[in-house]
Design a protein around this nucleic acid. Structure first.
Length: 509
DNA sequence: CTCCTTAGAAGACCGCCCAA
DNA sequence: TTGGGCGGTCTTCTAAGGAG
């Protein structure tokens, strides 16, 4: 692969020569696109516009000639025109029909029902004359609504939400009580029964309607935009010197694509042949991008080499692990035996361990940052997870809970994070004390004391070491060295390393 | 209904890096 | 040398849930 960039990825050091430390690879490449992926796509989708955006970003970065800037501006205008005139059709995915079914909010079990949602959902049985033996699934009902329903059914409305859900579900199983309730009638009326077959049929019709191409005005706009883009292409082909093949090639029609998009994936699992080239007809979106597209490659814990583009990376998961640290542990790192392969973030169907997320979303050491905005919104959470997992892996997990329990009950995640923060501060102080103790007589010790005393205005200076991205042990070493530098020139020969253990804050030298 | 607790989001802070 | 951007960490705020 051309342009391979050597970089540091998490705990591993990667270069084009191979694995340096652990079995983590992270490569940034500009992947040559296969000719089959240059086939024009038959409709304008959001994905297409994203591709155009990617092209423009590349062009801006490459443009050195004023004419190029003019072309870029023209393309931007075209993209805006496409978007603002409502010509953008949602990317058609295989799930579309199911999504339409779900949107009906009807009664058969949701097609995409997820057991994980059970905690927030309950089901009215409604096996009575009103409901014809069906059930109604209610999700995301607020506490106040639950209380209101309980009151209207003359059942207890105290307790937590789970209790109320259970009471309501139980109540709905009593057909006599259910039938005699006016509130039940309202609920049934607000959830009209539609058989599953009818749901699917309606969803398919809605999908077909969406894909039908719209009205004449839309068709006209499409033609106009096609003309604009063709014009731009013409300019590009004349202007480009040595880059004739890089022109943007887009064809717009209002006809639906015949198949889902071809992913820009390049996955090579161990002992597995690369995916054969998919036929051009299957490409729903394709822009003949500049001759190369930025990709990254990670080597997963099972040695699977996963190459992906920014477009392959979805939004960060909204997942929280407030009451499921064991679950976090299962999703954190695929090189540990705890890895559960749970799919929270996936790239090309591969579950991505959380430990990789930072570099996938953002790592600018490996090229330009991706998903910077998304990463900013989650980096704080990710940092907390990292700290928790670091501690969780210090010993056996029962030790973790021994430390972070109160009266036999496990602490909540907020408390754990607070305690870990306190532990870090204690460690800072211990390190500073250690340095001062090692060099008590130096004339600069007063300065060292000022700088290395937590709780003072200068404490931020002390903690900055850990902030600058080094691990905790590295930070402690740095902190120690800083103190030594302020007090005496050489670092004592005996010092080799510090091992940070939040549960046992001892310094190993 | 009110108060307390908690999780999560957002952004502030500060040092490091790097290009000009 | 300097200033802007970035990354890591911490703090604050808000919304939702729990409990009396």
């Amino acid at each position: 692969m051309a342009g391979l960039t050597c970089c540091h990825f998490g705990r591993s050091h990667i270069c084009d020569k191979g694995l340096l430390t652990e079995n983590r690879w992270f490569k940034v490449t500009r992947k040559e696109l296969s000719p089959t992926k240059l086939i024009c796509e038959p409709t304008v989708s959001l994905f297409t516009l994203k591709q155009i955006g990617a092209c423009l970003a590349w062009l801006v970065s490459e443009a050195t000639h004023p004419c190029w800037l003019a072309v870029i501006f023209g393309l931007l205008t075209a993209a805006l025109l496409v978007f603002c005139t409502g010509m953008v059709s949602p990317q058609v995915k295989a799930m579309d029909v199911d999504q339409d079914v779900d949107s009906m909010d009807v009664n058969d079990p949701p097609l995409n029902s997820n057991s994980n949602d059970e905690g927030n959902a309950f089901r009215f049985q409604a096996r009575s004359s009103m409901g014809s033996g069906r059930s109604i699934t209610c999700e995301c009902i607020s506490r106040s609504m639950l209380q209101e329903w309980c009151k209207s059914f003359a059942i207890l409305h105290s307790g937590n939400m789970k209790t109320m859900r259970e009471r309501l579900a139980k109540f709905s199983g009593d057909s006599d009580a259910w039938d005699s309730s006016s509130q039940a009638k309202k609920i049934v009326e607000s959830h009209p029964y539609v058989p599953l077959a009818a749901q699917k049929l309606a969803a398919e019709k809605a999908l077909a309607k969406r894909m039908a191409g719209g009205n004449l005005a839309l068709q006209e706009n499409l033609k106009l935009t096609n003309a604009h883009i063709e014009e731009l292409n013409h300019c590009l082909s004349h202007m480009s010197t040595g880059m004739a093949s890089d022109c943007i090639s887009i064809s717009l029609t209002a006809t639906p694509p015949s198949a889902p998009p071809l992913p820009s994936e390049h996955v090579t699992a161990p002992n597995e042949q690369p995916h054969p080239a998919t036929s051009a007809a299957q490409i729903s979106t394709s822009v003949a991008t500049p001759s190369s597209a930025l990709t990254r490659t990670i080597i997963l814990g099972d040695r699977t080499e996963l190459t992906f583009t920014e477009a392959d990376v979805g939004s960060p998961s909204l997942t929280g692990f407030a009451d499921d640290i064991a679950g976090l542990n299962r999703m954190w790192d695929d090189t540990t035996p705890n890895w559960g392969g749970t799919l929270v973030l996936e790239i090309k169907g591969h579950p991505i361990p959380i430990v990789y997320w930072k570099d996938i979303y953002m790592n600018s050491n490996c090229g330009s940052p991706w998903k910077l905005r998304q990463w900013h919104s989650m980096k704080s959470k990710w940092f907390n997870w990292k700290v928790i997992m670091h501690c969780y892996h210090q010993g056996i997990h029962t030790q973790f809970w021994d430390e972070f329990s109160h009266n036999g009950e496990q602490l909540c995640i907020t408390k754990i994070i607070q305690q870990l923060s306190e532990l870090r501060k204690d460690e800072d102080q211990a390190t500073a004390e250690c340095a001062r103790a090692d060099h008590p007589s130096h004339k600069s010790c007063v300065e060292a004391n000022d700088i290395l005393t937590p709780g003072t205005d200068n404490h931020h200076i002390e903690t900055s070491g850990f902030r600058k991205g080094m691990g905790q042990s590295q930070y402690q070493e740095d902190c120690y060295k800083r103190a030594v530098l302020y007090s005496a020139p050489p670092i004592p020969a005996g010092i080799q390393s510090f091992h940070w253990n939040p549960l046992n804050s001892s310094k190993v030298m």
